[in-house]
Every structure is written in C-alpha cells, then in structure tokens.
Amino acid sequence: MLANHAKLMKFFMSSGEIVGRKKLQKMIYILKKCDVPFEEKYEFHFYGPYSAELTVRIEELCNLGFIAEQKEKKSNYYQYRYTVTDNGQDFLNQSMVELPPFEEKIQQMKEKSSRFLELVSTMLFFDHLSNSEIEEKVQVVKKSSNYTAEDLQQAWQFIEEMKQLH
C-alpha cells in the first residue's frame, strides 16, 4: 500500500532535510535517471523536468503528517523546507518497499545549487541524443539561463560521478 509514497519517504529519510521544492523536483528526476525506480511522471517545463504528480504526492505526505513542510519567506518569494516526522518514520518502518542504495548520490546533490541541478536534469532529459546534440539542445531550451561551457563541463563530470556512486 502507498508504495510510491513509501519510496519518497525513503528519499526524505536519507536526505535528512531538503530545502527548496525546485531542488526536490530535480533530485528525484536525477535519481530516476540513475535507475532508482521512482514512478512519478515528469514532463519538460519552463525550468526543466517537472512532475505535477510529485507535487501532489508531497502534499499528501504533508497532509498525512509524514513529512513537515516549513514555508520560509525570502526577499520576493517563498521557499519550502522538508523533514521527516515521527509518524513518517513509523510509516516507513512498516513499509516493505526496497530501493537500491542512493545515499551517496543524495549527499552529492544536496551540495549543489538548484540552478546546477536544473542544468543536470535538463541534460538527462535529452539523454537519447548524442553529447554534442544535448549541449546544443540545452543552449536552445535554457537560452535565458546563460549556462557557460564550464557549467556544462561540470555537469558532465557530475553525471559521470553520479553513475559511479551508490
């Protein structure tokens, strides 16, 4: 029961704390692309891969009291912070869901900015193309983000590292 919710709870448990919905969206997408079997459906949006299904599922986890969401006011926008509650831990203890190890991947991603993860997830969205085609596509769909050649280089390196990690 609620297997997809339980998978997300495992993610939150391993993360300790996630700051920012955008970061959360991109992290789950990158993990999916690393063969972690999350089932939330993603589409390409203005800011890269985005899952409306994930947004609703997070709301459900909040309403069920499994994760706590703190809304923080920034200069001209709001940011959200997520942590697992005691009820969430109980739920997870009863769950039978198994996932491949991903703790190291999560730690690596947490250290990166959401802007960088947006770039990485956008590159992974086009992973059916060749590397040069991916770079061209990123410059087309992310024109206004002004990613530099150095950003792209770092993103490639990060993708490689992610594939090696647990």
Partner: peptide, 8 residues
C-alpha cells in the same frame, strides 16, 4: 503557484 523557479 509553486516556489520561485519550480513551475511557471
């Protein structure tokens, strides 16, 4: 509406 940079 979502968070800044999450969804347009």
């Amino acid at each position: 509406p979502g968070e800044e940079g999450e969804r347009l």
